[in-house]
């Protein structure tokens, strides 16, 4: 339970729920994938907002957003708003989940699957626009919207790639991912070797001590 007024929170959740369900109806692929996830209950605690809410996937590929739930969630995640924003936008949700400050209880597979479905939602704007505005006008506006989304998606990816290249190549501010992974492997191997050596030393010392007592 949160400290927020339940009516206010219900208003926000109701609006988000309606928008989400409308978007799912306009994205046939996601609709099928969500149907397969039916029965999943996800608990989300946003620590920075002192807010807990639940996402339930019900038959018919509908999403219910709840303020209060007494069922045991399939997965329960706790983190800041920044952590969740990064997770939703992530291309590699498993890595983001491990490396971010998000705490997870329960099944990570259902959470990752859900994130992938949401991130991959391809909404067909044309159908509702054509229905309301007619074939010609609806198609034109849908084309314009597609161009805007396509351009902004391209710009986002390009910015991300260029930023990454600058940090790695030009600024040498962060090491490349492979180099970092190689370094971590080296650290892990060294750590294991040290542990083995320590165990060997302890065994030899114990043996020496027992000889002295004899």
């Amino acid at each position: 339970m949160t400290r927020h007024d339940p009516a206010l929170l219900s208003a926000a959740l109701l609006g988000a729920e309606r928008a989400l369900n409308q978007a799912i109806l306009l994205a046939p692929t996601s609709h099928r994938e969500l149907e397969a996830l039916s029965g999943t209950l996800l608990g989300i605690e946003v620590t920075s907002l002192e807010l807990t809410l639940y996402v339930e996937l019900v038959p018919g590929a509908e999403v219910r957003l709840l303020n209060h739930c007494e069922e045991k969630p399939t997965a329960f995640v706790r983190g800041s708003i920044e952590d969740f924003t990064a997770l939703i936008a992530s291309d590699d949700p498993a890595a983001t989940l491990i490396n971010s400050g998000i705490e997870l209880q329960g099944s990570s597979a259902s959470l990752i699957h859900l994130q992938q479905v949401i991130a991959g939602m391809d909404i067909d704007w044309e159908a509702p626009l054509v229905e309301r505005l007619g074939d010609v006008m609806g198609h034109q506006i849908a084309e314009a919207l597609r161009s805007v989304f396509s351009w902004s998606e391209g710009a986002r990816k390009s910015l991300k790639r260029q930023l990454s290249e600058y940090l790695l190549e030009e600024g040498r501010l962060t090491p490349p991912k492979l180099e970092l992974e190689h370094f971590f492997e080296g650290v892990q191997t060294l750590s294991m070797q040290v542990e083995r050596a320590q165990a060997k030393v302890e065994r030899l010392m114990a043996k020496a001590a027992s000889r002295r007592t004899q």
């Binding site: 009516a7 219900s10 303020n67 209060h68 007494e70």
Partner: peptide
């Protein structure tokens, strides 16, 4: 229209 929100939360509390 807020009575719908009050009722929505009540339904959630019913579990």
């Amino acid at each position: 229209g807020i009575h719908r929100l009050w009722k929505r939360f009540t339904i959630e509390l019913s579990a």
